[in-house]
């Protein structure tokens, strides 16, 4: 599996966490992986993004500047990164927060009202994982049996309720 993934949104939306989950899933699945966050003051209330790479061979640059997969969770991120998606790539938009459609016609776009679904289903703060669930469903990035193992790496088992909620969010995204 080779994939360059960019996840972008506001600080506080769990952008970096979503990336961490993915990178663990990739590692458990046997891929070479890397994770690189944006950092600094821009994260405090501003935009946050992280680059995740899955590769069959050792990874050179950990920076994703032409993503195969873009997850956009706010409008500034969509505006900034939509033009960078590789032709033929996939774009995932949180349509509860972003009202405009994608401009690109040479990529495959998926609209998921993740933030609204999260609120309706009592999964507050987990719109990020609903988006990731959709990504997994549409891209086959990692087989379902790895999801729980990867989640346990990023949510400690002593916080079982949180673990279950995260898994529920992923499942919600898969079916959305």
């Amino acid at each position: 599996m080779n994939a360059k993934i960019l996840i972008a949104g506001f600080g506080g939306q769990g952008i970096l966490f979503a990336g961490k989950f993915l990178v663990y899933a990739g590692m458990i699945g046997g891929a070479e992986v890397s994770w690189l966050p944006s950092y600094g003051p821009e994260m405090r209330g501003g935009t946050a993004n992280c680059s995740v790479i899955f590769s069959d061979s050792p990874i050179g640059s950990p920076i994703v500047d032409t993503p195969d997969i873009l997850v956009a969770m706010n409008l500034p991120s969509l505006d900034k990164f939509e033009p960078t998606v590789r032709p033929g790539g996939q774009l995932f938009i949180d349509s509860a927060l972003i009202t405009r459609p994608a401009n690109r016609s040479d990529i495959e776009t998926h609209y998921i009202p993740a933030t609204r679904l999260a609120e309706e289903l009592g999964l507050q703060g987990l719109a990020n994982m609903i988006m990731i669930g959709r990504v997994l469903e549409k891209t086959g990035l990692c087989p379902p049996d790895i999801v729980t193992a990867a989640m346990k790496k990023v949510v400690p088992e002593r916080k079982k309720a949180l673990l279950d909620k995260n898994l529920e969010a992923i499942e919600t995204g898969r079916k959305a």
Binding site: V23, E32, V33, S34, W35, L36, Y39
Partner: peptide, 10 residues
């Protein structure tokens, strides 16, 4: 550098 400090890999 900042990339190596901030990035994660196995």
């Amino acid at each position: 550098d900042g990339i190596l400090g901030q990035m994660m890999e196995p």
